[in-house]
């Protein structure tokens, strides 16, 4: 087996601090996704067209209910629809399978050999991806929404500050949940069924399809015990000031708790899986 220069000469010189490595991964994630401009435009366009349909469905439902439905009027219901469409890309609501594919192909061995923890590296890259997608994928649906149906947004600054924090937490919870889902690839050869079931559950229970506040009791109770409302309903509620003050802090705390729990379980499962991993070939 040939020896590569990098293997022959051990990494010399300065050792990078963990924070610098983390930042480097965030930047790489940002640059990786910002390369495909046309794909970004196409995604934003599709999100906007779906927003148009969704906004009229929610407005129609509110109208059929007599003008208000569980605290939503026509304007706030439309705003909900447009905000959801703006969050789809940053929060990665349609999923992420990169780790599962790397486990299947054996490429995960390279990730394990790197001097940075794989979960931390992927998390950093995901933050970079989310940071990139926030404006190009989020602004078009909101601008079209403002022009077509109008947006009902709060005039105070605080909801936006807390909302920004909530969006970051939503990105983190989404990553942690998808990481855990992906680790199933250590045990399963065919992930398609599991991934579809996760997507179905997360799409409906996150409030991406219809607001969680419209759920009948039995569904609301199921949603409450899952991390999914933290992905979409939580940030939308906070940005629109539907929840304020102590209640808003409570929502943020719930998001943080789900992130912590999922990321820790994800670590343990990943390590357990990596220990039984056998990569063929060389």
């Amino acid at each position: 087996m040939p020896t590569f220069p990098s293997q022959a000469a051990p990494a010399s010189g300065r050792t990078r601090s963990p924070i610098a490595a983390f930042t480097a991964h965030v930047v790489m994630g940002f640059r990786r996704w910002s390369t495909y401009r046309l794909a970004t435009a196409a995604g934003a366009f599709t999100n906007t067209v779906f927003g148009l349909i969704k906004a009229y469905i929610t407005i129609g439902a509110v109208g059929a209910a007599g003008g208000t439905l569980m605290g939503y009027d026509a304007a706030t219901a439309a705003t909900y629809a447009w905000l959801v469409q703006a969050l789809i890309a940053p929060v990665n609501i349609f999923g992420w399978q990169e780790l599962a594919l790397r486990i299947r192909t054996g490429d995960v061995a390279i990730d394990l050999a790197r001097p940075i923890d794989p979960q931390v590296a992927f998390l950093a890259a995901d933050l970079g991806r989310a940071a990139y997608s926030l404006i190009p994928r989020g602004a078009p649906p909101l601008l079209v929404g403002a022009a077509v149906t109008g947006l009902a947004l709060p005039g105070a600054v605080l909801p936006y500050l807390l909302g920004a924090l909530s969006v970051v937490l939503a990105v983190l919870v989404s990553f942690a949940g998808l990481w855990l889902l992906n680790t199933a690839a250590f045990w399963l050869l065919d992930m398609r069924g599991v991934i579809t079931l996760y997507m179905v559950a997360s799409n409906i229970l996150s409030g991406m399809i219809v607001p969680v506040h419209w759920f009948p009791d039995w569904m609301a109770r199921i949603a409450q015990v899952t991390p999914f409302p933290s992905l979409v309903q939580a940030p939308v509620d906070i940005v629109t000031a539907r929840v304020e003050g102590a209640a808003a802090l409570g929502v943020l705390a719930t998001q943080l708790a789900w992130f912590t729990a999922l990321v820790l379980v994800g670590r343990v499962v990943f390590r357990t899986g990596a220990r039984r991993l056998v990569v063929q070939g060389g």
Partner: peptide, 21 residues
């Protein structure tokens, strides 16, 4: 089963709306 559940998910949206109206 996955494909069936996508259909069920889409119907879920209509079901939720009609629990309210």
């Amino acid at each position: 089963l996955g494909s069936l559940s996508v259909g069920a998910l889409e119907f879920g949206e209509i079901y939720v709306i009609f629990t309210n109206v």
